[in-house]
Design a protein around this nucleic acid. Structure first.
Length: 230
DNA sequence: GACCAGGCACATC
DNA sequence: GATGTGCATGGT
């Protein structure tokens, strides 16, 4: 397949998914009090909590944090790691994730005096490297923070994205995260709203049809080329 | 009971 | 650079 064909296929997948499912409007933020708690803090915390975790469990943990009035950079700085771990317990691996949230918040206060906007301003690649230097922030979490919390065009590549592209023969089995991300950036304009929708749509079609054991019945991509499934 | 979920760090080869 | 393992809850 030529690069032109590859780009066309990636655009075609987006067109089909948006037609089939419509806008997904991620990130789902629900703050009852935006004066003392912040949307960006909630998204960053959610991005860490969702690591290898079903979203429904993340929502429970976020609800507990909101109830405890901890969804602000200052409140997250002031809570103990143990107290934080108790609140996020429903999200699983809670001791590990409490440490990662703390690492992020400590970094934010240490280098940017708690100003999230300053952390995610300037050259995109520089921002990404900054985030990756924080313990517990890997590629996917860094891109999710940049895209969903900062509104910057950093495409998020998750397990579904790779599985779908691999199943439709658009990437090699060993393609790295950055390679997959580059494929999308070549095919699509650098528009945060577009990246936001595309990633959310891939998760949606993945959940419905592209599990490790695929269920292709009714999948909007089922007549596109793909590898044989049981 | 087994498998999966919107990963990452670390050890090892 | 690739591969394996621990982290841990809750839904299917």
């Amino acid at each position: 397949m030529t690069k032109t064909q590859l780009n066309a296929a990636i655009r075609a997948i987006y067109e089909r998914l948006i037609r089939a499912y419509g806008p997904q409007n991620w990130w789902p933020v629900s703050l009852d009090d935006t004066s003392s708690q912040s949307v960006d803090a909630q998204i960053v915390v959610g991005a860490i909590l969702t690591q290898n975790t079903a979203w429904a469990n993340v929502e429970r943990a976020i609800a507990q944090l909101g109830h405890a009035r901890r969804l602000s950079w200052a409140a997250l700085r002031d809570i103990s790691q143990e107290g934080l771990a108790r609140l996020i317990r429903p999200a699983g691996t809670y001791r590990v994730k409490a440490g990662r949230i703390k690492a992020f918040v400590d970094y934010l206060w240490q280098h940017y005096d708690g100003r999230f906007d300053d952390l995610v301003s300037g050259d995109l690649d520089t921002c990404r490297r900054r985030l990756l230097s924080i313990h517990g922030i890997g590629r996917e979490t860094a891109d999710a923070i940049l895209l969903y919390a900062a509104g910057r065009p950093s495409f998020v590549v998750d397990a579904y994205t790779r599985r779908i592209l691999r199943r439709h023969l658009l990437i090699e089995g060993r393609a790295s995260y950055d390679e997959v991300q580059r494929r999308f950036c070549m095919a699509m304009p650098a528009d945060p709203g577009l990246y936001n929708e595309y990633h959310a749509l891939l998760v949606e079609v993945g959940k419905r049809h592209c599990k490790p054991r695929p269920r292709c019945d009714g999948c909007p991509l089922s007549d596109m080329p793909h590898e044989a499934v049981d």
